[in-house]
Design a protein around this nucleic acid. Structure first.
Lengths: 229, 229
DNA sequence: GAACTTATGCCACCGAGTGGCATATTACCA
DNA sequence: TGGTAATATGCCACTCGGTGGCATAAGTTC
C-alpha cells in the first residue's frame, strides 16, 4: 500500500522532524528575545521538553541550531552544482545561476523569516558569526571538489576558487543589505539583492579610487543614512 | 627624562611582553604536539607558570593565542590603508599593494614559522578556523570604514566591499598553497604566492568552463595526485 | 621607604559539551 | 497479537573553557 508512495516517513522520523523544528523555532525565539548568551541550553531544552543530551543528538553546537536555515540553502546550492549543465558559459555565471536556483528552491514556510532572525543574531554574537563563516568555508571547499570532479579543473588553478569566493562574498553583501536595510522582504527580496550584487562584480576589477581627497580626520558625512559604531 | 626617547618600555611592560610571547610559543608547540583539543589551558598555564586567570587577561579565548601572528599582519594592513596614497589607480591595486606592504613589514624573528604552525592547526581544528575567519571578517569591516572615511565611498556601493573580499580570498588561497604545498618557504615565499594569486584575479570574470564533460558518476581520474574523502 | 597603581593568584562558580548506561518508544516479524 | 530487535531518549557524573570577586604581590612614584 505504500510501496512507491513518497509519503511514508515513518512515525519515528516524523517525530524527529517535529522536535528538530521545535528546537530551531524555540531557539530563534528565545535567542532573539533574551540574546544568544542570555539563553542557556537548559532553558531551551526545558521549553521544548527535551533533555540537553538529546539536543546534542540533533545539533552539534549551540550555534548550530540557529543556523539551520542558511545551511539548507547551501545544501541546495551544492546539489544544484552536481547536475547543472555548463554550455560553454563563463564559470562565474554558472555559479551565480546555481545560487539563484538554490535560493529559488527555499520554499519552506517561514524560511526567509528564520534566516532574517538568524542573521540579526549573528551580527551581534561573535561565536555565531564565526561558525557561520566556517560553514561557508567548508561548503566552498566541497563545491570546489565538485567542480574539479565534474569539469576536471586543475587543482592548482586558483581561478575557480576565487570565482566561488566572489560569489559567496556577493551573497554576503546581499544578505547583509537585505537583513539590515529597507527594501523588499522575503525570499524574493533577497533574490533581487543577490542579482544586484552579482551585477557589481565586474566593477571589482575596474573601479578606481574616486580622487585623492584629503580631509580632516574627524570629518563626517552630513547626511549619512547609517550610524557607525 | 623619558619624553621623547622611544627606548623606554618599563620593566612591567617588558615582563608582560615576555609572558605573552611565552604563552604564544608554548601554545603553538603544545597544540602542534598534542593537538588543540588535546591540550588543556591548565597544562599550558602550568607550563608557562601562569594562572589560568592571567591567561585570559592576555587572550580572549583559547583559539586567540594561536592566531596572534596572523593578527599582526592584518593590523599592519589596516595601518597601511590609513595612509596609502591613491594616485587615481584602481582600488583593487591599492588594496593589493597595501597587503603586500603589510606582509613586507612582518620582519619579526620566526614570524613565518609561527604562521605556518598556526595555519596547519587551523586546518584540522574547526573552532580555530572559525575564529580566524571571524577575525578576517571584522578586519574587512574595519577596512571598509577606513576606505569610506578616507575616500568618501558610498556605503551602498558594493564594489569596495567585494574588491576587499577578493583580496582576502586571494590571500587565503596564497596562504593555503604556501602552508600545504611545496615551494619557497618563509615570508618571501608567501609573498610570491600572494602575487600569483593576485594575478589570477582578473580570470575570475572571464574564465569559462572547460567543456561539457559528461562522465559516469563514480568514475575517477586515473592518476589523481590527491585523495578525496 | 611609604603610598599608590597594577598585575597576578586563588577560589568558587556557570554553562557548553561528552560518555555511559538504563529505560522508553517505535519498528519488525512470527 | 504478542514478543523481540532497533533506536531514541533521559539521567548522571564529569571535563574543561571562561568569568567575577577579592586578596596579595610586584612595580612605580614621590
Amino acid at each position: 500500500m505504500d510501496a512507491m508512495a513518497p509519503t511514508e516517513p515513518t512515525l519515528r522520523e516524523r517525530k524527529k522532524l517535529r522536535t528538530r523544528q521545535a528546537l530551531i523555532d524555540t531557539a530563534l525565539r528565545r535567542f532573539t528575545g533574551q540574546g544568544f548568551d542570555g539563553t542557556t541550553l537548559d532553558e531551551l531544552c526545558a521549553d521544548v521538553e527535551v533533555s540537553k543530551r538529546t539536543f546534542f543528538r540533533y545539533f552539534t553546537t549551540k550555534e548550530d541550531v540557529a543556523m539551520a536555515p542558511t545551511q539548507d540553502l547551501w545544501a541546495a546550492f551544492l546539489a544544484d552544482l552536481e547536475t547543472r549543465e555548463p554550455n560553454g558559459s563563463p564559470l562565474l555565471g554558472l555559479l551565480q545561476d546555481a545560487l539563484l536556483a538554490a535560493l529559488d528552491r527555499m520554499s519552506a514556510e517561514g524560511w526567509a523569516d528564520r534566516v532574517l532572525r538568524s542573521r540579526r543574531l549573528a551580527a551581534d554574537t561573535p561565536s555565531m558569526n564565526a561558525h557561520g563563516l566556517d560553514f561557508c568555508d567548508r561548503t566552498t571547499r566541497t563545491a570546489i571538489k565538485i567542480l574539479e570532479e565534474r569539469f576536471g579543473f586543475d587543482p592548482h588553478d586558483l581561478r575557480p576558487r576565487l570565482a566561488l569566493d566572489v560569489v559567496v562574498a556577493a551573497f554576503h553583501c546581499a544578505l547583509e543589505g537585505w537583513t539590515f536595510q529597507s527594501g523588499p522582504a522575503g525570499r524574493d527580496g533577497l533574490a533581487i539583492r543577490l542579482r544586484e550584487a552579482f551585477c557589481a562584480v565586474p566593477g571589482i576589477i575596474t573601479m578606481t579610487v574616486p580622487q585623492p581627497v584629503t580631509r580632516s580626520p574627524r570629518q563626517e558625512f552630513p547626511g549619512t543614512p547609517r550610524t557607525d559604531d
